[in-house]
Simulated scan of single mutants.
Amino acid sequence: MDIEAFIQRFAAGLDELEGLAPAAARARYDALCAGLAPHDPAGLRVEDTRLGGVAVRRFLPDGARPGRVLFVHGGGFTIGSIRSHHGVAASLAAHLDREVISVDYRLAPEANYAMMLADCRAVAETIAPLAMVGDSAGGRLVMDLAASCAHAPPLGLIYPPVGGLDASTLGPDAPLLSRDDVLSIGHSCPTALPVAAAAQPPGLTLHVLSVEHDPLTAPLEAAIEHWRDAGASVDYRCAPGMVHGALHAHALLPEMHSAWQAFCQALKGSL
């Protein structure tokens, strides 16, 4: 698959969500993302359960090394689930050779941002993760979760929205995610994004993956400069030609596949 074919397929799927009730839109989104995911790696055990009172999906590779990794999915705080991001979490577990715990946190409009963060914190406190990884909106949650930790573990951040997003900081519109899409987060989940960028990095060891065509990339790269100046170790890579959401099809898109593998291997080296 090339990137244009992915964009057309994903855009058509997103268009079908318009006007649907939240439950129906979420189910359609789950199916859209699952249709792009690879088969589970061999020897991977998957289990749905609850930890800290929150629904989670466990991904446990055969012979996994000790320790667990927390994964928090994206979806703009309104859609996304352990089902939509099953392929990403399964691949992460296989690459890291660790158990990955994917959190099915509550979503807007039924829940506010504090409730989402509380769900993630409840799971994190239960498993004491070796690392925390977040995709898009999940990256924002992981950053805020880490900020409340006395000693944050290594973080994996995949095209996250950072604080202080406005018309002056965002990059240009891109396929699948426009500037207006980003700014609309303020309506769907008002407290998800702080009005100013954080002065301190969210952790001391950060692994960051972005894509070339994404309005979130420019402010993210500016934040990375500040984090490095503040003393954080930041391993950063940007997948050329890729767009926001391309991680779902990482097995089908060579550039995304390469960047994802490098991201996972670098993160593994920090565990």
Rank of each mutant, 00 (worst) to 15 (best):
L96S: 07
G87K: 04
L32M: 06
E110V: 13
D104Y: 06
H95M: 05
P61M: 10
N112K: 13
H73V: 02
H73L: 11
R45P: 05
G35K: 06
D104C: 01
H95I: 14
H95L: 15
A24G: 09
A108N: 00
A114V: 14
V103W: 00
S91Y: 11
L20V: 10
P41H: 04
A21Q: 13
G80F: 02
L117D: 12
A118E: 13
H39P: 12
A31G: 07
L117A: 14
M115N: 10
P61H: 05
H73E: 03
D40P: 10
R45F: 10
D30F: 03
V103P: 00
V54K: 02
S81D: 12
A37L: 00
D104N: 12
M115A: 15
T78A: 13
L17M: 10
L96K: 11
G74V: 03
L60A: 12
D15C: 08
M115P: 06
A64Y: 05
R98A: 05
A94S: 15
G67M: 13
R106C: 03
L14F: 11
G52N: 04
P38H: 08
A21W: 07
R83W: 15
L51H: 00
D97E: 15
E18P: 04
R106M: 00
T49E: 07
E18R: 10
H86V: 14
R28P: 03
H85D: 13
G75A: 03
A118L: 15
A111L: 08
F77Y: 12
G63P: 02
F77E: 08
R57H: 06
A90M: 09
V69G: 05
H86L: 06
G80S: 04
Y105R: 04
M115C: 14
R57C: 01
R65Y: 09
H86K: 12
V72H: 04
V46Y: 06
S91L: 06
A25S: 13
F71N: 01
A23K: 10
A90T: 02
P66K: 11
P66V: 09
L107V: 14
D48T: 14
A94L: 05
E99H: 06
S102M: 02
S81G: 09
G52S: 06
L60M: 12
V56F: 00
P38F: 00
N112D: 15
A108Q: 02
V46W: 05
A21V: 10
R57N: 02
P22D: 04
D15P: 02
E99W: 12
R65D: 14
P66W: 04
A114D: 15
A93L: 13
P66M: 11
G35D: 02
L117V: 14
R65G: 13
L17N: 05
N112M: 11
H85K: 09
L44M: 13
Y29I: 11
G87M: 09
A93K: 07
H73K: 04
D97G: 14
R26W: 03
F77T: 01
L17Y: 09
G75T: 00
L36W: 02
A111C: 05
A42D: 13
R68M: 11
L70I: 15
A118T: 12
D104V: 01
G53V: 04
P38K: 13
R106A: 15
S84W: 08
A24S: 10
P41Y: 07
G43P: 04
